[in-house]
Design a protein around this nucleic acid. Structure first.
Lengths: 250, 250
DNA sequence: CTGTAATCTTTATGA
DNA sequence: TCATAAAGATTACAG
């Protein structure tokens, strides 16, 4: 399998060691070093690789770095590949992390995120994999029998959920509920704006009134309204509001 | 996270050992044993898993069994998963096979065939992976999506900046500028709402008019307004708006 | 990612 | 009707 055409890839500046390994394969593959923002290795405009060493893989699960990086990778390139290097027994055991979490993350990335996971033993293996993939993409490109989903940017809808999650006292569930009910962030925020806190005769807050209540949304109570009105609209004169509520109270 | 719903999978008759392991997880997952022609484990009508132990994985590369099986798997099920079990250094070394061939096959299956490869250490890991995937497919179908782990301990002001950053075509600088100018997210969003896009005589968008323009904020173009109005308020009838803008154009 | 702890909502109950 | 307690969800945090 002689390769007349030299393979060529782009490698992130920080991957010094990988370059050293590739230097020993000069006759087969060349590279250029650039400052890459998203991937570690670029095979083509469509194929990008993120490389993670075993320990860093685990660490990146904890701080959510892994999913952020991989989602960006997937958004940007048609084919996103994750090479996990040296994920051996030792790595699994020498982390205070739950095995379920590690395997769960692995499964999620591979089967739910649709990112190609390739395990290797060490950097030398990784270099081989890179060379193989570059060969397929750049030389043996005559095999188009695979269908891969086009890069998927975050949809508007996802971004709307996303936006509501920057409120306080909220998580994915409530964020979704708000957008699903009110359709747009503006309408959701307007709903919060128009919501009033009800008070008991003794002056204790108890429940809310307004469109959110009317729609029967669960999980939104006076504390949520109070905190988020402050966030969204600034300090509110609660005394004044309280009086009003006394009057309009049903 | 109590699982009221019991997970259920179908396992090929020959996978005796796997069943033994799953028997110890009776409270979480049940299975039925059937004669399966194509896959080893069936999670649903759409998701099927092929399980291969390290040595058999290598052996199946040699005799071409691997690609035959996996291609059939991919043809039959929407999501095809390959669990490679115990592919450790020993397996790599104790086979007369070229390392390049093994890694090449691995790469091919994962990135070119588009099959989800999940490496595990042993059968126990495999059982966990099966349970995790079944859980996602059968219970957690209403995906939490990608949600950003919003920094919970943030001052109100920081959170306002943060909220603006979930707009499109914006970064930390513009987000800050918006809040510093309009004080609250609601006022900032209202400013975007009331902003109009100006058009040239030929009907091409050019510049904006409104409070944002008046305040002299830099970096907010008609594209920014258009994209974020869509995000915040939903589709806008641009034709109608265009006409209005023609009239009010300064 | 997962599992568990902390927190908040809602429902139930008694005064 | 209000206040309190228990039950049920959701979110926060650590690993």
């Amino acid at each position: 399998m002689s390769q007349k055409n030299l393979l060529h890839v782009i490698i992130d500046k920080r991957e010094r060691k990988l370059m050293e390994v590739l230097d020993r394969k000069k006759d087969k593959i060349t590279y250029e070093s650039k400052q890459l923002e998203i991937a570690d290795i670029l095979i083509s405009n469509e194929v990008a690789i993120e490389r993670k060493e075993g320990f860093d893989f685990i660490a990146s699960i904890k701080d959510n770095r892994l999913f952020e990086q991989l989602l960006r990778l997937k958004e940007t390139y048609i084919t996103a590949i994750l090479i996990i290097e040296g994920l051996n027994d030792m790595v699994f055991e020498n982390t205070g992390m739950n095995i379920n979490s590690i395997l769960g993350a692995l499964s999620f990335v591979s089967y739910k995120l649709g990112i190609s996971v390739i395990p290797t033993r060490h950097l030398e293996d990784t270099a081989i994999v890179i060379e193989r993939i570059a060969y397929r993409e750049q030389v043996k490109d005559d095999m188009p029998l695979l269908y891969r989903s086009a890069p998927k940017k975050m949809s508007l809808q996802e971004r709307r959920y996303f936006m509501m999650e920057s409120l306080v006292d909220i998580g994915p569930k409530k964020a979704r509920l708000l957008i699903d009910t009110f359709k747009t962030p503006y309408d959701a925020i307007s709903a919060i704006k128009s919501t009033k806190i009800k008070y008991t005769r003794n002056g204790n807050p108890k429940g809310i009134s307004g469109i959110i209540k009317q729609k029967g949304l669960k999980g939104f109570s006076w504390k949520f309204i109070k905190n988020n009105q402050e966030l969204l609209f600034g300090k509110i004169n609660n005394d004044k509001q309280k009086i009003i509520n006394e009057v309009i109270k049903t």
